[in-house]
Design a protein around this nucleic acid. Structure first.
Lengths: 333, 333
DNA sequence: TTGTATGCGTTATCAG
DNA sequence: CTGATAACGCATACAA
């Protein structure tokens, strides 16, 4: 089913069909002819071929989103926003976490060959060579929720602000020994949250204390191990700011295993709110960040910004402290 | 950067470049020429244009996977397997949950226009008209983890077997009042799991009892409400087989809220194992299903089966009861 | 051993 | 108002 078939059926030239379908403004067509064309398109069930169209227009009406790991529920929200923004522009958003032989490069190369009009990278790219290759291709790209020193195109969230909110909350409850269960080494969000934590602590007269910081990757298991370690230190912190909600689940478990009651003996507040947080025992106090908005801004920027221009934006969507059961004033130890 | 540029640089014809790059077996080329070609390709950083290649070969080396919701962690595992299988065939797997104006059809139409070589549908398609449109296009497709009465191309898991394992476990612990927190009405997996539950109960001399069954959608909130209702019934069940791990999180919370101790007063076993399950309090006993294998088989079938042939397969990967803390013999009430 | 010619399905620029 | 025609970049049968 091609243009030629429809043209034959309607008794006009292929170009007429094309222009009718694309609402060519410079087309002066008799209403009856237009009707005939539209009818033929409908009865034959014609749909333009995407490859041919892309070849001709150099536009695929498709955006790509690369994420490191589908298991991290944080990405679900980002994808949601990105898909919505793509739909608004009548485009498709496709996402992938493809990784061949441990590297994301082959996968990204495949996408870069004109398959998508732009690529959002939400982490997971380790080698800077991968980014170089991307730069070499003429495809627009954007880093989502992280940045690289030499990459000047990224959109991030206000991670420092989130950390501040969390610490302020704990301070206002009366906590002084506030620990930080940070994200993994090398993670951009992790270091911004850690920075925010330290700044907020300093503001309250607390010098950074290595004994109050542990690192973990953004998984339940990582959180479990890090929290177990933290609980072994003396004196034990009375509150913990956890950099990620997945780690927080593991942290909650670690407290339970150590016989430390939350929030009576230990307060926990985590970054990122998720539907799940409300149903944990105890329900988790979190800082809600505008993840969906991040995804949305991502494709908007991708679609509207000159690929050569720098983009360094912090999404200013609303952040909110979601008070639940995992935080309380420090108990008498 | 096109074939023509590379040809000019290497001093040969475009067709030579093309055949060298595609390892044309019927090509007899002087080693030095081949070297020259390869060198040019490399120095110019040439990458074949995907659209042109797709147009010419009618093959995009891309598969699509449609899922209803990224927030359901079950899909993360399916995607993982599907991406791996795609990578094995040097293809890209792209996934989407796109939904415009409440319908998946526009999104699927967009994909169907030659953008992908085949489409995996992991639920989320409500209208059968959508499926009709898919059938009309000449694109291979496959239902993953569900089936429609008039669709004869699907791969599913052994949901009845999983239900049997769960119920047998509870029976072996000594439970008799075993309830089922089922999945939503209209869900294919839900009805198979419910069927397996009833069959297993019958096998142990228990007639199906509506008072022991509740429905919930596959979310923590649904599980919370359904479990709350179940706990209000008298006599209260001593064990519950929950159809989904997300619901189980809500169910756990509901028991906590009702002051019912798990597993002392109530045993809970859920379908689908996830990394998270181990870190809940109490850690959740689950039936692990071969989700990753399901995704893998999906693209394998898609790539290797004639699109006109029927496919009705049940993945026979290993299922396993993962014993944790949420099940125990019934306590003395 | 390498080059030529043609077509994949569109869109856009012309004529008519 | 509509039709012819030329690309877009690639792959392949065939000619040389």
């Amino acid at each position: 089913m091609t243009l030629a078939d429809v043209a034959a059926h309607a008794g006009v030239d292929r170009s007429v069909i094309s222009r009718v379908m694309n609402d060519d403004p410079g087309l002066n067509i008799r209403p009856e002819t237009r009707e005939r064309v539209l009818a033929s398109v409908k009865t034959l069930g014609y749909r333009p071929n995407a490859a041919a169209r892309t070849l001709r227009t150099r536009l695929s009406r498709t955006f790509g989103l690369f994420i490191p790991d589908y298991a991290n529920p944080v990405y679900a929200e980002i994808i949601k926003g990105a898909e919505a923004a793509a739909a608004d522009r009548e485009c498709v958003l496709v996402t992938g976490s493809g990784r061949v032989a441990g590297s994301a490069k082959p996968y990204l190369d495949l996408l870069a060959d004109g398959r998508v009009d732009g690529l959002l990278l939400a982490g997971g790219v380790r080698a800077s060579a991968t980014l170089d290759a991307l730069r070499a291709s003429r495809m627009p790209w954007l880093l989502l929720n992280w940045s690289m020193t030499d990459a000047t195109r990224h959109i991030i969230l206000d991670d420092e602000g989130a950390a501040t909110m969390a610490v302020e909350h704990l301070v206002s409850l009366g906590h002084t020994r506030i620990a930080h269960l940070a994200g993994p080494d090398g993670s951009d969000t992790a270091s911004r949250r850690a920075g925010g934590y330290r700044a907020a602590m300093r503001l309250h007269g607390r010098a950074p204390d290595p004994a109050l910081e542990v690192r973990a990757d953004y998984t339940a298991e990582g959180g479990f191990q890090a929290m177990t370690e933290l609980l072994g230190r003396t004196p034990r912190p009375t509150a913990v700011f956890v950099a990620n909600v997945a780690s927080a689940i593991g942290a909650l478990r670690a407290a339970y295993r150590a016989g430390v009651r939350v929030p009576d003996e230990l307060s926990i507040v985590a970054v990122h709110d998720l539907p799940l947080a409300e149903y944990l025992v105890p329900a988790l106090t979190t800082v809600r960040m505008p993840l969906e908005e991040l995804g949305r801004r991502g494709v908007e920027r991708l679609a509207s910004t000159d690929p050569d221009d720098a983009v360094a934006e912090t999404v200013d969507g609303p952040m909110e402290l979601v008070l639940r059961e995992s935080t309380a004033p420090p108990g008498v130890l």
